[in-house]
Structure formats: C-alpha cells, structure tokens
C-alpha cells in the first residue's frame, strides 16, 4: 500500500533532503509543497498518512496549518510533525498545544526523521 506524505517547507533544498530521506525508507508517495496555500490545495486530493510542516512561512504559517488540520473533521486524524529550529521553543510549544503530534528540530539526522516516520506509519 502506498502511503502519502505531505511536506510543507519553503526551502527546495530542505524539501529534497527530507524527500530523499523518506524515499530511502519504503513505498511512499511524497507530495511537496512550498507554502500553506499549496498545502491547503493538495490536502483534499490525497489521503495523506503524515504531514511534515515547517513553521516559519509567509502568509499561512505552520502553526496555522496545524490548527487548521487538527480542527478539521477530515484531516484531524493525520499525524502531523512540525519542523522547527533551535531557539524557537515557544513555537514548538504552541505547535504541540495546537495538536501537532511531534516536532523535529533542525538540523536533524536522517535517522531521526526516519525513526519518527516509522513510529507514525506502520
């Protein structure tokens, strides 16, 4: 069974880094988006099994995306991992309070990301 992972991240290099880490794992279909708007557009189109989102993005920030996903009826079951950076503990806390399932702090090792993935996708 193919599992779908949504990546919301505005840096193309970071996106491909994450994508290649995920692809090394298993049969995943990765949908890459570079901001909250794109993410909102693709959400209804796939049955996502996991969402990975950056926090600092223009317009719709990652926290707002978390809030949207976790408050909705259709998507709230999808595990959501926020990607933050060192020093933004406040944003991490807010993300978790809004219902994010976990957070990753950049820079992280490929293995850490894969471990997180495995724990949410079986």
């Amino acid at each position: 069974m193919t599992r779908y992972v949504l990546i919301v991240e505005d840096s193309p290099a970071m996106r491909s880094f994450i994508a290649s880490a995920i692809e090394a794992l298993n049969d995943f279909q990765i949908v890459e988006t570079s901001n909250g708007f794109e993410a909102l557009k693709v959400l209804p189109r796939y049955k996502f099994d996991l969402i990975l989102t950056d926090i600092n993005m223009p317009d719709i920030n990652g926290l707002e995306l978390v809030s949207f996903v976790k408050k909705s009826t259709e998507y709230s079951h999808i595990p959501l991992v926020i990607i933050t950076t060192e020093g933004s503990e406040k944003d991490q806390q807010k993300g978790l309070a809004l219902g994010a399932d976990a957070y990753l702090v950049k820079p992280f090792k490929v293995e850490v990301l894969q471990k997180v993935l495995k724990s949410y996708l079986h």
């Binding site: 920030n61 949207f68 909705s72």
Partner: peptide
Amino acid sequence: ITTLPSSSGVADSEI
C-alpha cells in the same frame, strides 16, 4: 499580520 485558515462551519467545498 497573519492569515489563519479554518474549515469549521463551512461546506466541504469551501474554506
């Protein structure tokens, strides 16, 4: 300052 999306209280085809 920010833009917050929400789907509560609207039809499926709306946001």
